[in-house]
Simulated scan of single mutants.
Amino acid sequence: MPHFAATLRTGLCATVLATALLGLAGCVVISPFGGHDDQLRETTVQGDGDSKILWLPISGFISDAPSRQAFGLVQQQSTLATVTRALDKAEKDDDIGAVVLRINSPGGTVSAADEIHARIQRYHETTGVPVIASFGGVAASGGYYVAMAADTVIAQPTSITGSIGVIIPSVNAKGLLDKLGVEDASYVSAEHKDIMSPLREASPQERRIVQDVIDSLFARFVSVVKAGRPNLDSNHLAEITDGRIFAADDAKRLGLIDRIGHIDDVLALARDKAGVDEARVIRYYRGRSAPRSILAEAATGSGMNFSAAGVPIDLSVDSNAGASQPLYLWQPPGAP
């Protein structure tokens, strides 16, 4: 019997290792631990009553591309897909009296933030349901952009927000390549086809081209902020939009947010806007395990969980990391 158990463990380890290696190689892997459950379900995490408040988390890097975990074995929906599916489901539920966007994000891609902003606006216009943005620890750049679709913005006393601006991450490795005796031998169809190549220095004309793109996207960001924050202190607009971050009290002083409060304050406002004294706070989730509280992470219902000595290991792989694309993102110095 011990020999059988040891053999089973060895076989299981070999299966996990093989599937991991296939995932790293870019192959399509079917998890040996069960199928994928993609149905969107509802669970009550707090409160009572017939009326509902939808608690909709928007966390981490905002993207329109799916992310992968566990060496690529598990694929999770993009932020855009998650928000879109939730709002599509919410549109069909007349019992929802308010939506709370719980934003804890430094931002992400320009296109994803803009599309999520538009989707939230469309939901509000279609249903008339009030939308509240509740800031967690960080709601900066693209995270703040998304919040501009809400009727009311509430930040925690310790929230960091702002970072209104655009960045296209790039590096110039030409000096290093010169030391290694390596030179760029790319073939292009026209002189600007390899614009922003890390293998060579950018020409002044190329810098102007890229800057024009950034300026256009930045102008859109500012217009979205002005539309979402009509009481913004216009005398401090240059300060507000120079990319800096703000603590909650400064954000309120400048008109970037409406209130400062905690989760209980957010839910009290949501009930007030819904016109009810009591309501059930609901969350949507996929998979077999429902989140048990407002702030609990929802399970995906597929793939494998890795841990060492009982401590979960995050094996997430962000497909957007390092990409040379325009970002509404607060990126602290030294961040990957």
Rank of each mutant, 00 (worst) to 15 (best):
I240G: 03
H236E: 14
I263M: 14
R244T: 11
R229W: 03
L254R: 03
N231M: 10
L232A: 10
D233I: 02
R229S: 10
L269T: 14
I263D: 12
I245T: 15
A247P: 00
A238N: 13
A227D: 13
P230T: 06
L256P: 04
D258I: 09
E239S: 13
D250V: 03
V266K: 14
D249Q: 13
G261V: 11
L267P: 00
K226R: 15
D258F: 07
I263Y: 11
A247Y: 01
L237S: 12
G255D: 09
I257R: 03
D242G: 04
L267A: 07
N231Y: 13
R253D: 04
A227L: 12
G228H: 08
L254W: 00
A238E: 15
D250H: 05
T241M: 01
D233H: 04
P230F: 09
A238P: 03
L269G: 08
P230R: 07
D265T: 13
G243T: 08
D264P: 02
H262I: 02
L237A: 10
V266C: 13
N231H: 15
L269M: 15
A268W: 05
K226T: 06
A227K: 15
L254S: 04
R259T: 05
N235T: 07
R229Q: 09
V266D: 15
R253S: 12
G255Y: 11
D249F: 11
T241V: 10
N235R: 09
H262W: 09
A247H: 03
V266I: 15
D264Y: 04
K252P: 01
L232H: 07
I257V: 15
D264H: 11
L256W: 08
A248C: 00
A238K: 12
G228Q: 05
G243I: 07
L254P: 00
G243V: 03
I263L: 14
H262Y: 12
A248W: 01
E239N: 10
H236M: 11
I240E: 04
A227E: 13
I260L: 01
L232P: 06
H262K: 13
H262R: 15
D258M: 10
L237G: 04
G228N: 07
D258S: 11
A268D: 15
D233K: 10
I257W: 02
D233W: 02
D264W: 08
T241Y: 01
D250T: 09
I257G: 03
A251I: 07
D264R: 14
K252V: 10
R253Y: 02
G243R: 08
D250M: 05
A248S: 15
R259S: 10
S234H: 05
D264M: 08
L237R: 02
F246I: 00
K252S: 04
R259A: 12
A248P: 02
G243M: 04
G243P: 06
D242I: 11
L267I: 14
H236K: 12
H236S: 14
A268H: 14
L237H: 05
R244E: 06
